[in-house]
Design a protein around this nucleic acid. Structure first.
Lengths: 196, 196
DNA sequence: AGAAAATTTTAATGTAGATTAAAACACTGT
DNA sequence: ACAGTGTTTTAATCTACATTAAAATTTTCT
């Protein structure tokens, strides 16, 4: 059916676009990347992007929604698999790190919130808060079941998320390093939590 | 003497400027902040900034130099005070965190390196590398003297620095929270290192 | 093939913001 | 008060995008 095939092409192109955009945003920031930058990465003209998106702001906005999706999936998956609180946290960290250094690139440009329109900003902040809460809940679960040593949950969460969110600043797509990050980071981040 | 007094005023104004600039850069990123933003924060006109600085790029550049200074001092101070490797690391972390949430604001906008001119970028990256090495050296010292558990030093360093560098993204000057961060963060970050 | 829809390009417009030069103002010491 | 130097402003210029509209091209379907 035409509609379906069309949607398929449209959607997949749009996806490539978001990936390219996220990559640029991560490297040069929102204001620092021109639509030309993104378009070039796709072999297109800047004007072409407007076929997929209303304006530049919508581009970051969609990147955020996508990031939120991935984050939610990672959390859900990690929580569903059972085990101790620490197990769940560790599983989630691994997943999150994999996403950051993985094929789809770090979709999570968590730095560009100020660039969003107020409505979108509110929505994204809300998603972000929910995500943080869910993560903190896992930590609390670990504390409750004794697998994680008591700690300031909020601060600990911030510390861990900071480590991960910062990865794109120093990691630039070296595959060997990617493997090393995936194998080391979750360990390092979990280590600080472990209870006796 | 006239010259001295003049330098004094000039320098102190320039300092205020750098602080304001760092604050803006941290909030909206390099390209996202206009010189007007910085100037307004000082009650000046954008054009006035050119009296102190050749151009916008030099503004970030100087912010980085300043950050490097503070970082170096913190490291030197922490290393000089003696104790085990872990002690030194902990002392350094405390100092660094204090800077990030302190009066002078997070001078360290470690995200805007791509905005620098190649010459400046190289210089700043070199400084940054030296800083990382010095920090990693402290960790190694701790491993050697048994105060820190063996680990992938490079990755551990990245993880810790990420946590700290990310602080400006979620901390926005709330004094109460600042105290809490200073008291919690060093503990959390050290916890993951502690040996037996 | 050929029409209709989808996708991309070319060309034009508008605006924000960096930068500069010249003018105005303020302070210092005499 | 005055001259000189330091500091800030006003006004003007220039450029890099974001955005739009219309035209051209490609794709899809019959």
């Amino acid at each position: 059916m035409a509609t379906n095939a069309l949607e398929s092409r449209f959607e997949s192109q749009k996806d490539r676009m978001l990936k390219a955009a996220a990559q640029c945003f991560n490297q040069k920031g929102y204001s620092g990347t021109s639509l030309r930058d993104v378009a070039n990465l796709l072999g297109l003209t800047d004007a072409a992007l407007y076929y997929y998106v209303r304006n530049k702001e919508e581009l970051v906005y969609l990147c955020y929604l996508r990031a939120a999706d991935l984050g939610r999936d990672a959390l859900k998956g990690a929580a569903a698999a059972g085990g101790s609180g620490l197990d769940k946290v560790a599983r989630y960290l691994r997943r999150h790190v994999e996403i950051m250094v993985g094929e789809d690139g770090p979709i999570a440009i968590m730095s560009e919130i100020p660039s969003l329109k107020p409505v979108h900003r509110d929505e994204v902040l809300e998603l972000s808060r929910m995500h943080s809460s869910a993560f903190e809940a896992l930590i609390e679960e670990g504390i409750a079941d004794g697998s994680i040593a008591p700690c300031d949950v909020r601060m600990t969460g911030n510390a861990i998320m900071g480590s991960i969110n910062w990865i794109p600043k120093w990691f630039h797509g070296d595959g060997r390093q990617a493997d090393q990050i995936v194998s080391e980071f979750p360990r390092i981040l979990s280590a600080g939590l472990t209870a006796g």
